[in-house]
Write a protein that binds this DNA or RNA. Structure first.
Lengths: 162, 162
DNA sequence: CTAAGTCACTAACCAAGTTAGTTAGTTTGT
DNA sequence: ACAAACTAACTAACTTGGTTAGTGACTTAG
């Protein structure tokens, strides 16, 4: 059993609970959400719109269908998402050069620049943190994170896919 | 500038992009979402409902107002959330012993147990990963994660609060 | 060259949040 | 002691952002 009501107090004694490393991992997750919420607010889009912009920024112009697949939403939703991004001035629609069914969604340079400006402190902060590590410590951190990814992947796989 | 279209290809040269550690951190974030999605699906609730159950499980019975504050939603939303959790059999409403305005939301033992069963592999996996570290490596990992939390916190603070 | 498949889109709908306002109960100031 | 102010939970009406179903334009395979 995981938690028990004892004398009016709640006691949690599951393995790992209270582990400082686990707590940090959860903090990083919570902070990631806060950053995404604020950044999307600053751009005047919602969380999905920001996720779309991140795909467009790192992969370049994509079709509405490509975006739908990456965001795991319907193509109908993708149309709406691109509508909103276009209205906000973050992307432009361009016809595909050869396949006239397709519409290429292209991120606007100005918007990409704004996103990176906000995220640069984070990216360069982590990079310099890693660079400040001794080779041995860096190995330890990299192996640890690889282990965490493996454990999280196994946990996800053990859960029903849908 | 962060990204540039060069000869039909997209090139990203922001600091930290492509850093293997940064990639792991992002993978952990993505996997966290997958796990939450699947776990909430297994319980027949949405992401907010699962978050509410996590608060109730770790902190014990809370009022609807307490839940609203922790989930950062309106008290009206909190009422709906508790309605859905109650209908799904995951919580019960009980009147507060002394303050008759209040309604205590109490998690059902069976539901708490199910949540912990799903999360135990993750929690104990990370715990044993940490236990398998030499003292020096553990320090390196803990300091690194503390640094990451600091960087993420600073990034969040630099973004407009609303 | 027709049949099947793909893409973007629209319409109608649904889930889950919001704000505004109500009612019941509690706390505070005089 | 009691009226005024506050607080908790709830309801109603609305908004946002997704879904499914279905259409028309275009492309690909047999």
């Amino acid at each position: 059993m995981a938690a028990d009501q004892v004398a009016g107090r709640w006691r949690v004694d599951s393995p790992g609970v209270g582990n400082p490393v686990m707590e940090r991992l959860q903090e990083v997750g919570a902070l990631t959400r806060v950053i995404e919420k604020r950044l999307s607010g600053a751009l005047g889009v919602n969380a999905t719109g920001l996720a779309a912009m991140e795909h467009l920024t790192s992969e370049g112009p994509l079709t509405a269908k490509d975006l739908a697949d990456r965001l795991r939403v319907s193509t109908a939703a993708s149309t709406h998402i691109v509508d909103r991004l276009e209205k906000a001035g973050h992307v432009v629609r361009r016809p595909h050069a050869t396949d006239r069914r397709k519409v290429l969604v292209e991120p606007v340079q100005e918007s990409m620049t704004r996103i990176f400006e906000h995220l640069t402190p984070l990216l360069s902060g982590v990079e310099s943190l890693v660079e400040g590590l001794s080779p041995g410590d860096r190995d330890a951190v990299e192996n640890f994170l690889a282990g965490v990814v493996r454990i999280y992947t196994d946990t996800a796989d053990a859960l029903p896919r849908d």
